[in-house]
Write a protein that binds this DNA or RNA. Structure first.
Lengths: 339, 339
DNA sequence: TCACACAATGTACACGCGTACATTATTTCA
DNA sequence: TGAAATAATGTACGCGTGTACATTGTGTGA
């Protein structure tokens, strides 16, 4: 292995000068720089990231904490793939590497330890839930001043750094679209309220109803867990509501449940888009594959990942922090299940 | 920040003893161990991974090189998510972290530099292609003795470490299934031959035809690029072949193309599963969402990722290397498009 | 020409850990 | 009981880099 020493020796300078040339710090005579660069080139010298990290006391790693989802082995593919990809772009831009952290099945969340061990300089928590253990873990990060950012989740009272989309507006749009199309009895298949996005969607749903002078009926709100299966399972109840004339449209909090619901309803002889209108959420790949095509709400997951990383990594001077504030816009995509 | 020094001081031993206790090396008096552990606990001491890595000259990172796929921002979700998840499990098991490496859009492949910089101790290359730049990059890794493993790709002549599934057998099964169902004129929508899996599928396709006494007709083989769009684009040609009676079934090299093809054919008034049989490949999420449900070949992506990581990280003594050799089995899943 | 500013480089050390080697304490065995 | 073996611990240093500080070189202005 070739180190700074050999380069210095070959270039006929001290190690410090080599370091300065490579890090572009301090004044260097042009001739010296060339000699050093030449020597480094010739020896194929590559600085040891290990030594650099150690000397700088910075790992240069951005940790990304992934939720443990037992069914799909890792993640509800589309959603996380996009976010991760956005994170990757920003990380690269700012010279950071992305360290993947798979949460334990046990649910242990000792995020602070990752900082203590200096494995990461900052981290993005995906799929954070509003449960006590999570809140404790995040509070510890906050207290110790470790930089972290949530994606698609907010803890209103805590004021943690987070990047989120405007799910209230998205749901409002979705439900308003159904109302505009003539629906008056709209069921809502929501996800668990440990996710702020579920709460946001609920409020958007309610507001759209209220704005149209429609009453909110708790009996029309069903609870799923964002899985396809839970959509299928909701079908029976939804079918009954449809048959009894209590429901003429359904808004599902994500596409997976919406698609599961479509399948489940089909068994009951009910066809989405014909017998009942349906709107999903996420604009996932499945939404255009399914038949009829699913009306849904597009969420800029890629951009959300990018912003989260940028907020953590961008130097203050870039002044991006401000530009990155606020909820990202979502937009309704009208397809076949709502016309 | 609390370091070994404070722990040693509090426990009344030397730093070396602290190190020995925590690393469980050498004989330690029980009482001493307890004192040290107590002290570490009390101080909340967490060893600096940075310093450890530096001292050991090992990063403890398993690099995962991700292909650059412009359209889907990161990856054809299901496929990579599963592999990545499997890698994550094995990495965790062997005490490694997963460092994500997003390939440059430019296509630069200086994998060796990652090792030179000591950023990773081993790496898994996803989506490797049989193109000159790739071969050069991999040859360099091999030459320098850096441990790496390919997934779902082989370079026959080079003998690189790789984990692959038996796509020849999978394709054979798929096409045989179509033949058994009465099809005699089977088109093949394959992917680019820079992927060995494409070549494997081709040979399986040919063998199934040959075994059934059917002639291989190059005119019935179409080329896509594994994207949904390319499936849609192939529809016109396939539709013509079907109309002219030259084709009564199609085998597509992955689900995305198969699903795109279904959509494309629908425009031409041709319904998969009714007017033409269709088999896809991958058993992706979409295959059960699409209607009619797609017959496909299930590939153990998760297990492939796990094995790739295990091959690189498992200590010799575990003797897993041998168990992990050979192609992983795939299996046909019969659904609606082929009955 | 001399003093002084600043450019350019060298010297020296810290960073926190693993570990080879030296040293001391304890056991074993005759 | 004494010597040898072994357990238990301490001492000392290397790992490769960043960088504070010291030193030397190079103008600059009166």
């Amino acid at each position: 292995m070739v180190s700074r020493k050999e380069v210095a020796s070959l270039a006929g300078v001290s190690e410090a000068t080599v370091s300065r040339v490579l890090n572009k710090v301090g004044p260097i005579r042009e001739e010296t720089r060339l000699r050093v660069e030449e020597a480094a080139q010739q020896l194929g010298y590559v600085p040891s990231a290990l030594a650099q990290q150690f000397a700088r006391s910075r790992s240069g790693n951005l940790g990304v904490i992934l939720p443990f989802v037992p069914k799909v082995h890792l993640f509800s593919t589309y959603y996380f793939a996009e976010i991760l990809s956005g994170i990757g772009e920003a990380a690269k831009q700012y010279g950071y590497d992305v360290l993947l952290i798979f949460r334990e099945p046990s649910g242990s969340r000792d995020y602070a330890r990752l900082f203590l061990a200096q494995k990461i300089d900052a981290c993005i928590v995906l799929g954070a839930q509003n449960v006590p253990e999570e809140k404790t873990a995040l509070a510890e990060l906050q207290k110790k001043g470790y930089p972290f950012c949530l994606v698609n989740q907010r803890f209103a009272e805590e004021g943690y750094l987070s990047v989120d989309a405007d799910h209230h507006a998205g749901s409002y749009e979705a439900v308003k679209h159904l109302i505009d199309g003539g629906s008056r009895r709209i069921a809502f298949l929501n996800g668990p309220d440990v996710f702020s996005s579920s709460m946001d969607r609920m409020s958007g749903y309610k507001q759209a109803l209220a704005n149209a002078g429609l009453a909110y009926d708790p009996a029309l709100t069903l609870l799923g867990n964002y899985s396809r299966k839970s959509g299928v399972e909701a079908a029976e109840a939804v079918a009954a509501l449809i048959r009894s004339g209590q429901v003429d449209a359904v808004f599902a909090a994500n596409d997976r449940m919406a698609i599961g619901l479509m399948d489940g309803l089909r068994v009951h002889g009910i066809k989405a888009g014909v017998d009942v209108k349906l709107v999903g959420y996420d604009d996932s790949e499945g939404s255009v594959i399914v038949s009829p095509k699913l009306t849904t709400v597009a969420v800029p997951f890629y951009e959300m990942g990018r912003r989260a990383a940028r907020r953590l990594l961008a130097p203050e001077k870039d002044g991006l922090a401000q530009a990155d504030e606020g909820l990202l816009p979502v937009h309704l995509i009208k397809r076949e299940t709502s016309s």
